[in-house]
Design a protein around this nucleic acid. Structure first.
Lengths: 357, 357
DNA sequence: CTGAAAGCGCTTACAG
DNA sequence: CTGAAAGCGCTTACAG
């Protein structure tokens, strides 16, 4: 015996009112031509009974579940919450659910994650790929969120422009000798950011790039980055490709007795939770995740709803180019200041001229 | 005309082999008694055709979707990734998908989020409730992840014990006068942590609690916490209910020229990503999220699979008590040291006695 | 404007 | 050991 659902179904409503299920279905979906009176009667009855349509029935009939998958590369990436929230928001706004799949940084796992989602009959997939992974054609619409340097059907923050914005800001404050901190040069995101930064260094200036992973291979995990040394050699600003690295730099500087921003300016990337919590607040660059998510989800939705299997299953994100780039936004906070500013102008226990303690 | 799925279905397999769908279904699920030969033939054919069972068909027939919902209170909570990953891992390990719903910190939104999930026919819901919310009976199994002080069907980290562990550690290092930093006393989690801490302060010791939100209401956002002042008055250790607050304390101390752990010991809570990145690494306490997730998901699964609608729709997490408590684990790193230790024993540019720069 | 009927893919008693 | 049949809840041509 089949397992009936607890709540009322179309049959129940139809029986109560004395019409056919077809009419109830039409009235509720607003598709068939049903008389205005009947429509209200049916809707009222549905509300009265607390009718919730069965996704299973709908899905079986239409071939669509109203659920999209979200594949994330590595939860340890602190950007994860922003992405997940933005996708969930954009999706639920147009009636889609979001099924989560974490690939835990493993390429094989990523494929497995995609398969798990397909087994759950998702209508499409948003994927933030593991570094260096290319997404092959899977049998459903796909939208990729990655670096714009990644070929494929991608939406991305414009990391290059973000890098430019940071360095323009520093240059505007008079800084000329910059230390740029990256982690791994094989990351296209990091490369874009560093590339954008370098492109804005002035010809009378200088930029030295520090790749943390390379340094740590030589000197061991958590080794000092030698920042004090560089500052002694005249560098006045440090720009990191992530708030995480900026924080590491900040604490290293503190321990060396170097003050931020009085002695050196410092910037991060991504505007992670604590970037605004630390004192002084970290100047950083923020991705417009809501916008990125909206583009990805909309592309997916139109591929799902528009193309009835006759076109490629790949969602179309950008019509002209292959990639949609979304600008990043500079968040100026207190870790950046004009070069050679008079040291410590504010008493640490005074805020906005008002004594606090 | 109904919308056929792209891939093969049971009919297809049945036709190719020349048996009935019932037999194919039985062979694949291993339920009915089918001859060993037929089973292999059918399985091989299914593999060959790349058969993926239709969740919609299964769901419609059985009333189960194999999907559970995860309701999160507020994405700005940096604990989110750990929770989401752990739940996804535990769920996918036993064949369940996880549908995400973010309630964005709003109580009304939380109800909406639950409804969205129910409309997607989830079999059960794991919910991390918004502070102060009680979960009412919704028509499906529910598991709550919260503070153990929350009544209801709850799994939780043992925040009280975590607080005890921190203070025991500090006491063991000789600290007697402690500053405890919380944010909001109306949070049961924070109260549990602070409570646990206080319960381990020795009778010859002293603990002063600082509630940040209260302070900020008086003195404004981001105001100094007056830590230097307390240290001058003989406090030698600071324990925060969150790494976030510990980080804020750390930067405030740095700016006041106070060194950690030489001048004062500092601890956090939650072991957020950057707790191990900062220099020195932050001593903190970690939740056993994998364990918590497993308990929650298992409870849900057994409520879904076991109870056939005859018992309460609430999942049973803890049989004896109402709450399952999972111990927290102390992560000792470099921000804690014995009280009155000789100041700065290591050169900052030397690690493990080896010169690095 | 309304209804009868078919069928999406699956599972489960039941009969053979 | 295997199969015919019913039915989960829905939508959509089609007929009236």
């Amino acid at each position: 015996m089949a397992h009936p659902r607890p709540g009322p179904n179309l049959n129940k409503i139809a029986a109560e009112i004395g019409v056919s299920v077809a009419t109830v279905s039409n009235a509720l979906s607003g598709k068939g031509r049903v008389s205005a009176k009947l429509i209200t009667r049916i809707r009222d009855k549905a509300d009265e009974l607390g009718y919730v349509p069965s996704l299973a029935g709908y899905a079986l009939r239409t071939g669509r579940t109203g659920v999209i998958g979200l594949v994330l590369p590595d939860i340890s990436n602190p950007l994860f919450p922003q992405i997940a929230q933005a996708i969930e928001f954009a999706a639920s706004a147009i009636g889609y659910g979001v099924l989560l799949a974490d690939s835990r940084g493993d390429v094989a796992m990523q494929t497995e994650a995609v398969n798990r989602l397909i087994e759950k009959d998702v209508d499409g997939i948003v994927i933030v790929p593991r570094r260096g992974t290319r997404i092959v054609d899977i049998g459903c619409p796909v939208a990729v969120i990655d670096s714009p340097s990644t070929p494929g059907n991608t939406v991305a923050a414009d990391h290059w422009q973000g890098g430019q914005a940071v360095v323009e800001h520093l240059i505007g404050l008079g800084h000329r000798k910059l230390v740029l901190i990256g982690n791994n040069p094989s990351s296209t995101v990091q490369n874009d950011r560093i590339g954008g930064m370098r492109s804005r260094v002035r010809s009378d200036g200088q930029a030295e790039v520090l790749w943390i992973e390379r340094l740590e291979r030589e000197r061991g995990q958590g080794c000092p980055l030698g920042l004090a040394d560089r500052i002694a050699r005249g560098f006045t600003a440090i720009a990191a490709v992530s708030d995480l690295h900026a924080l590491r730099a900040l604490t290293e500087l503190h321990r060396a007795g170097i003050t931020v921003p009085e002695d050196v300016s410092l910037t991060g990337f991504d505007d992670l939770t604590w970037a605004s919590v630390v004192t002084p607040g970290l100047t950083t660059v923020r991705m417009d995740m809501p916008r990125i998510a909206e583009i990805a989800v909309r592309a997916l939705a139109s591929a799902i709803e528009g193309d009835r299997g006759n076109t490629s299953p790949r969602a179309t994100i950008a019509t002209s180019a292959e990639v949609a780039k979304v600008p990043m936004q500079l968040m100026v906070r207190q870790t950046t200041a004009p070069v050679a500013s008079p040291s410590r102008t504010t008493d640490p226990y005074t805020l906005e001229g008002k004594s606090l303690c």
